[in-house]
Design a protein around this nucleic acid. Structure first.
Lengths: 348, 348
DNA sequence: CTGTTAGCGCTTTCAT
DNA sequence: ATGAAAGCGCTAACAG
C-alpha cells in the first residue's frame, strides 16, 4: 500500500537501480529516463524510505545539534546559525539534510543518551554547543563516545566548547577567560575595587573560565580576591536575583556586580532595583554574552559580546563538510567588550 | 568490523531474535538470558543500528518538532517543554526517543521540506508549533502532507496553531483573538482612545487573530478603527522600533501602542525612549506572549501570558501517546492578561 | 521462553 | 546507460 521505489520503477518502466540513481543524482542517467522517473515519482507521490536508504548506504543525512537549553537564546542563536548552514541542499537522496537540535537540559546523562541515539542513527555529523560539564568521569565518557562517532565516520564539531583531545573533534572555542578578564578590567579601570562576582554552575567550563578571567584581572591590578564576594549559582535570572541579595548582605559596600551571563545580570538588576540601589550610580552591573535582550534593560547592560551566530555558521559549514577545519583542529573566537549604561564610576 | 546484533548473539550464545527481544523489552525473556545478552552488549560496546531497526519494524523513534525561529524564546520554551515530555523512556529499542527540533525560519518551503524529511524517516510523531502561513496554496500543501503523515501512522499535533481540518491532526490552539481583545480592552478601560497597533506579518494566523481581537475590542467600545493607526511588520524588535516612529509620524497624539508580541514591544519602548516619550506617562505600551524578558524592561511590560510551557508539555505527551487528545481533537488555551507598569491612564 | 526463517526497501557492485 | 542480484542489520511471525 505504501509506494516503494519498485513501484516507481515499474511505472517508469526502468529498473529499481535506475530510480535510485536518479534520486541520488550521483550517477549518469539519460535525460529522457530521468524525466520519466521524476514524472513517476511525482505521480505516485513517492517519498524515499529514509531508514532503508540509510541501511543500504550505511550513512544517513541526519545531523544532530546538542544544546543545553533550547529556551535560552544563547543556544537558540547558535543552533539557528548551525542549522541554516546545514539544512540546505548537499545531502544524499533528494538533496536535503535533516539538521535537528537535541535539548540536553544541561544533564550529562541526557547528553550521552543523545549521542548514543545519534550514533544509532548513523548521523552524518554531530555538533555539541556550550560549556561542558567538567567532571572527570563524564569527560571520559563523552570523549569515548566522540571517538567512537569519529571512527564511524560521523563528523564531530564542538562549538563554544573546550577541546576534547584525541577524538578527532574539531573545536571552535570561545575565549571566555579573555572576555572575563577584559570585563573586570573595564570595571577596575572605572575605579571599582569592591566587586561582587556571580559565577555560573561550578562544574561548567564556561563558568569556570569566566571566573578565572575575573580573578586574573583582579590579580593584575593587585586587588585582593575576597572569596566571600564570589557566589556560585545557576545560569538564570532567579539565581542572579537571589545571589545579589546574598552578596549585598555580605558586603553592603559593593560598588559593582559582575554576572556569569546576561540572564543572571538581569536578575542582578532586578534585585538592585528592588532593594533601592541605583544602576550605575550606586552599583555597576555587567553581564556576559550580549543576548538581544541586554540592550533593552534600563540602563542597557555592559557585557561581552560573543560571536554566537558567526561561530554557529562556521561550525555548521564544517559539519556539512563545506569548510576546512581550522589548522590543528582548534580555533578560539574572541568576545568583544560592549560598554553600555550599566557600568560607571563608583560613587565618592 | 562494526559490531552487529549477530555478534552479540554469538557472544551471548543465543539467537539474534533473543537479543532483539532483550533490547526492545517487549517480549518475555528469562532473566538469566537477558543478563547474558546485556553483558555481551556491554562488552562489545554494541549500539543498535537505527535505520535497520526502523526498516524492519516499519516505525522509528524519531519525533520532529517544527518551529519558526529557534532563536526566539517563544518557540524555545514550547520546544523545550515538548521535548522533555517526549525524550524520556517509552520509545522502542533501548527505551529512548529521539525528539528533535527543526527550524523552518518561518519559511513555508522549509516547513514542507522538513515534513517530507520526517515522513522519509517514518517519524513516530510530528509537532508543529506557532502560527501558520495563511495562504491558500500553502495551507493546502501542508494539509495534504499532514494527511499523508497521519495515514502512514505518524501522530500529528499542532501546538499554538490553528486546526487543519480532515487531517487527523490534534490541535492545541491559543486564543489569540481573545487575548488581543482583552489587552486592548484593558487600555480602553484606562481611558485610551487613540491606540496604535503594530501587527505582525500579515500572512501569519497569530498576527491576524490578535489584530482581529484588537479590532473587536475597539468596535465593542464604539471606537473608530482608523486604518492609519495599524502597521504590519515582522515579529522582531527592529520592526517594532521602526514602525513606532512611523506611527508617531502619522499621529503624534497617540496615547498607547499595542504590539503584536513582546519582541516588537521592546522595539516600541526603545523607540519611545529615544524620541523622548515617557512610558506610560506619555504613551502606554503593551505586548503579547509574556516572554521572560518582558518583566525586565523598565517599566515592566503589560502583556498577555500564553501558557507556552503547559501547551508544549501537553502536546508532547499527546505526541508520545501518553495522553488522550482533547474531545473533538481540538482544545483552545486561553492567555492571561498581565497588567504591569507599561500601561497607565492617558495624560490629561 | 527461545530458535528459524523470511523479508523490510533500498543501494551497489558486476554484467551487459 | 541500464539491469540483475546480493545483501545492509534488524524484526516478526511461526514453530517448537
Amino acid at each position: 500500500m505504501t509506494v516503494t521505489l519498485a513501484d516507481v520503477a515499474a511505472r517508469a518502466r526502468v529498473s529499481p537501480a535506475t530510480v535510485s540513481r536518479v534520486l541520488n543524482g550521483n550517477y549518469p542517467v539519460a535525460a529522457a529516463t530521468r524525466a520519466r522517473v521524476l514524472k513517476a515519482v511525482d505521480e505516485l507521490d513517492y517519498v524515499l524510505n529514509g531508514p532503508a536508504s540509510a541501511l543500504a548506504a550505511a550513512t544517513s543525512d541526519l545531523v544532530g545539534i546538542l544544546v543545553d537549553d533550547i529556551a535560552d537564546p544563547f543556544f537558540g542563536i547558535m543552533a539557528s546559525a548551525i542549522q541554516s548552514e546545514i539544512g540546505g541542499p548537499g545531502g544524499r537522496a533528494g538533496g536535503e539534510r535533516l539538521a535537528v537540535v537535541c535539548n540536553t537540559g544541561g544533564s550529562p546523562e541526557r547528553e550521552l543518551t543523545y549521542l548514543t541515539l545519534l550514533q544509532r542513527q548513523r548521523a552524518a555529523a554531530v555538533v555539541l554547543t556550550g560549556g561542558a560539564v567538567d567532571d572527570a568521569e563524564h569527560r571520559a565518557a563523552v570523549a569515548a563516545k566522540l571517538r567512537r562517532l569519529s571512527e564511524a565516520g560521523t563528523r564531530v564539531v564542538l562549538c563554544g566548547r573546550p577541546p576534547v583531545p584525541d577524538t578527532g573533534a574539531v573545536t571552535l572555542a570561545f575565549d571566555n577567560r579573555g572576555g572575563g578578564r577584559e570585563l573586570t578590567g573595564h570595571l577596575i579601570a572605572l575605579g571599582h575595587r569592591r566587586l561582587g562576582y556571580l559565577a555560573g554552575p561550578e562544574e561548567r567550563t564556561t563558568a569556570r573560565h569566566r571566573l578565572e578571567g575575573h580573578r586574573a584581572a583582579l590579580a593584575a591590578h593587585g586587588i585582593e580576591d575576597d572569596p566571600c564576594r564570589t557566589v556560585h549559582g545557576r545560569y538564570d535570572r532567579q539565581s542572579g536575583y537571589e545571589a545579589t541579595l546574598e552578596l549585598l548582605r555580605r558586603d553592603p559596600a559593593l560598588t559593582a556586580v559582575v554576572a556569569a551571563n546576561d540572564s543572571v545580570a538581569l536578575g542582578v538588576c532586578a534585585a538592585l532595583r528592588d532593594s533601592g540601589h541605583h544602576i550605575p550610580g550606586d552599583v555597576s552591573v555587567a553581564g556576559f554574552d550580549d543576548l538581544p535582550c541586554s540592550i533593552d534593560t534600563v540602563p542597557a547592560l555592559t557585557t561581552v559580546r560573543l560571536p554566537l551566530a558567526r561561530a554557529g555558521a562556521r561550525a555548521g559549514r564544517i559539519a556539512a563538510g563545506r569548510e576546512e577545519p581550522p589548522p590543528g583542529g582548534i580555533a578560539t573566537l574572541r568576545g568583544e567588550l560592549m560598554v553600555r549604561g550599566s557600568s560607571g564610576a563608583p560613587r565618592g
